[in-house]
Nucleic acid binder design. Structure first.
Length: 542
DNA sequence: TTACGCACTTAGGAGGGACAAT
DNA sequence: ATTGTCCCTCCTAAGTGCGTAA
C-alpha cells in the first residue's frame, strides 16, 4: 500500500477531565453519594430532561434508568435499604417514570439552574469577557494538541479533544439511545506516530506507526464497539488531495454516464438473476439517487438504502414507483419516479419472491464489481457526487445570472442551485418550531414596505432604496419557504465540486467569499480564486 | 463467497456567536 | 445599545467501501 505520511509527529489527544462536584441524590428520602460516573450520568440526564427541543422519549428514559439504577445499586451495595429498595423496585421503576418522591435529583437540578441563572444575569460585557476567556483556554490547549507535523508541515487536527462521556444520542429509533457512553481514557487511546517522534507524556494504550493510514489516533468506543478516529481537518493537504480525487472520479463518471446507463439498462434483462438484481439496484442509484444501503446491525435504527429495500417501502402504479422509507440518519426518503418497463418488472418480481430484502444476495461489493466492469474504481457513492455537481451546474446555467445583477440576486440563485442539490440528495432538516412565525414576520414586513413605497410614489419622493429592500425581502421569503425542510450545508460541503461554483462565479462576476463560509473557503482553498471581482467592490453596500 | 473488521466519508442536530433589526 | 434571528462550527453518529480471513 502507498504511504500517505512520511513522518507524523504530534502531542497525543487531549482527554477532558471531569470536574467532580460530589452531589447526592435522595432515594426514599435518604441521601446517597454519587460517584464521578453516576454524577455525570445524573447531570446528563437532568440536562436532557430540561431540553426543550429534544427531551427524552420512553426508550431513552428506560435505557437511562436501567443503567443508572444498576450503577447506584453497585456503588451502594453495602447499604441495606438500597438493597431492599432495589429488590422491590428495580424492575418496576425501570418500566415507569421516576417517582419524584422515590428518587430526588434536586441537588443536580439546582446546580444546573444556578449555572443557567448566573449566565443569564451576566451583562453583555461580562458575557463577552467570559467567552473570551473560554476561547483563550481552548486555544491554548489547541496549540498543544490541535496540530500535527506531517512531513515537516504543520497540519490542523479536526477532533483533537477526545469524546467526553455522555448519554448516547443515537438518531431515529436507535434502540440504545439514552445509554451511558463512557469516553475513552488516555490509556485506551492508540496513537499513530512515526518512530523518530518523541512519545507524548502519559500512559497511552499503544504507539503505532501506520504510514499508509491517515489517522492521528484511535480508540474503541465502549458502548457501540466501534472504532473512533482522530483525523486531520479539512484544511490539511492530505484531505484536500483526496477531495480533488473524489471530484475527478465523479467527472470521469460524467463523461461515461451514457454508456454506463446503457450498460445498466442492458443488464436489467441479464440471464443471471443476481446480475438483474444488481442492475436494478444500480438503476435506483443512478436515477433516483439512492444510497447503496448495505445491511446493518439490528442493534441500530432500521434504516434502508437500495439493497435493503423491502416490500413495504415500495408501491407501483403503472410505470411509476413510489418509495417511502427511512434512509440514512432516519431521514424520510419519499419520492416517486417513472421507470422503464424492465425495472418495473424486476421490482414486481422481487416483491413477490423476496423473503426479507427485495435484492437479497446483493451487497455493495457486488455492486462495485459490476460497475467496475465499465469504469475501474466506480462505486455507488460516486453517482451521488456526480449527480449533485451536475445538478448544480445545470441549475446555475438555467438561472441566467448576468454580471450586472445585484449581489443579493446572484447570491439568491447560488443558494437556489444549492437547494436543488439538497433536494436531489434528500438532505433534510428538522423544521424549526418557529418557522411559521418567522415567515409571517417577513411577510408582514414586505406588506409594510409596499405601503411605504406607494406613499413615496404618491409624494413623488425617491423610491429606489425601498424598492431594493422589497426585492431583497421577497427573495429572502422565497428562499425561506423553499428551504423549509432542506439543509443546504451537507451538499455544499461534500457533494458540490467547488469548481462548478468558481466557473459560474467567474462568468457572473460573483465573489464566492460572500457565499462559502470561512471553513469551507479553507477546505476548498485548492479551488477557490482569491482575486475579488470588480463589481464586488462597487456594490459593497447593496 | 461471505463475513467481518477497519478506515474513511457523509450526516443532521445542538449551541453559541455574529449580525441584522429595532 | 439591545434584542432576536439565523448562520456557522462543532460534535459525533451513521453511512460506504476495502482488505482479509475463514
Amino acid at each position: 500500500m502507498k504511504d500517505v505520511l512520511k513522518n507524523l509527529r504530534h502531542n497525543g489527544v487531549y482527554v477532558p477531565v471531569y470536574d467532580f462536584k460530589g452531589f447526592k441524590i435522595k432515594i426514599l428520602g435518604k441521601k446517597i453519594k454519587l460517584s464521578p460516573i453516576s454524577e455525570q450520568m445524573a447531570i446528563a440526564w437532568i440536562r436532557k430532561k430540561q431540553s426543550i427541543l429534544s427531551p427524552p422519549d420512553k426508550i431513552y428514559e428506560k435505557n437511562f434508568k436501567q443503567e443508572f439504577l444498576e450503577k447506584i445499586e453497585q456503588e451502594n451495595s453495602e447499604l441495606e435499604f438500597i438493597n431492599n429498595f432495589f429488590k422491590n423496585h428495580l424492575e418496576k421503576i425501570a418500566e415507569t417514570s421516576f417517582q419524584e418522591d422515590e428518587i430526588d435529583f434536586s441537588e443536580v437540578s439546582n446546580y444546573l439552574d444556578t449555572i443557567k441563572q448566573k449566565k443569564q444575569s451576566l451583562s453583555k460585557i461580562e458575557k463577552k469577557a467570559q467567552s473570551a476567556i473560554r476561547k483563550a483556554l481552548k486555544l491554548e490547549k489547541k496549540e498543544k494538541y490541535g496540530y500535527a507535523i506531517v512531513d515537516g508541515k504543520k497540519l490542523e487536527i479536526a477532533n483533537w479533544i477526545a469524546e467526553p462521556s455522555c448519554l448516547f444520542a443515537g438518531r431515529g429509533d436507535h434502540p440504545r439511545r439514552g445509554k451511558w457512553k463512557e469516553g475513552p481514557k488516555q490509556e485506551e487511546i492508540i496513537l499513530n506516530l512515526s518512530p523518530e517522534s518523541p512519545t507524548p507524556l502519559g500512559k497511552w494504550k499503544e504507539i503505532i506507526w501506520e504510514p499508509e493510514k491517515m489517522y492521528v489516533a484511535k480508540w474503541m468506543d465502549k458502548l457501540t464497539g466501534k472504532i473512533k478516529y482522530v483525523w486531520f481537518s479539512d484544511s490539511a493537504f492530505i484531505k484536500q488531495n483526496k477531495e480533488k480525487e473524489k471530484f475527478e472520479k465523479a467527472a470521469k463518471l460524467g463523461k461515461r454516464s451514457r454508456s454506463i446507463e446503457k450498460y445498466i439498462i442492458k443488464n436489467l434483462k441479464a440471464k443471471e438473476d443476481i446480475k438483474r438484481k444488481i442492475a436494478t439496484v444500480c438503476w435506483l442509484i443512478l436515477k433516483p439517487n439512492m444510497r447503496v444501503g448495505d445491511e446493518k446491525d439490528p442493534e441500530e435504527a432500521d434504516t434502508v438504502g437500495a439493497i435493503t429495500l423491502r416490500k413495504e417501502h415500495i408501491k407501483i402504479e403503472d410505470d411509476v414507483i413510489y418509495f417511502d422509507f427511512l434512509g440514512k440518519d432516519s431521514v424520510r426518503w419519499k419520492k416517486s419516479i417513472k421507470a422503464p418497463d424492465p425495472v418495473i418488472q424486476n421490482i414486481k418480481n422481487y416483491m413477490k419472491s423476496s423473503k426479507e430484502y427485495l435484492f437479497e444476495g446483493v451487497d455493495s461489493k457486488k455492486v462495485s464489481r459490476f460497475l467496475s466492469q465499465k469504469m475501474p474504481g466506480l462505486t455507488a457513492k460516486v453517482f451521488r457526487t456526480w449527480r449533485c455537481t451536475k445538478t448544480l451546474e445545470d441549475a446555475l446555467k438555467k438561472s441566467r445570472v448576468k454580471k450586472e445583477d445585484k449581489i443579493y440576486v446572484k447570491k439568491f440563485y447560488a443558494k437556489m442551485a444549492n437547494l436543488k442539490v439538497a433536494v436531489v440528495a434528500n438532505h433534510k432538516r428538522k423544521i424549526s418550531p418557529k418557522f411559521g412565525e418567522r415567515l409571517l414576520k417577513k411577510e408582514e414586513k414586505i406588506k409594510e414596505l409596499r405601503i411605504k413605497l406607494k406613499n413615496l410614489k404618491a409624494a413623488g419622493k425617491k423610491t429606489k432604496s425601498t424598492e431594493t429592500r422589497i426585492e431583497k425581502i421577497s427573495l429572502d421569503i422565497e428562499l425561506t419557504k423553499q428551504t423549509k425542510e432542506y439543509n443546504l450545508g451537507t451538499s455544499l460541503k461534500s457533494y458540490i465540486d467547488p469548481r462548478a461554483y468558481t466557473k459560474w462565479a467567474r462568468s457572473a462576476d460573483f465573489d464566492l467569499t460572500k457565499f462559502y463560509p470561512k471553513t469551507l473557503q479553507t477546505k476548498f482553498s485548492w479551488a477557490l480564486e482569491r482575486k475579488k471581482p470588480v463589481s464586488d467592490i462597487e456594490c459593497k453596500n447593496t
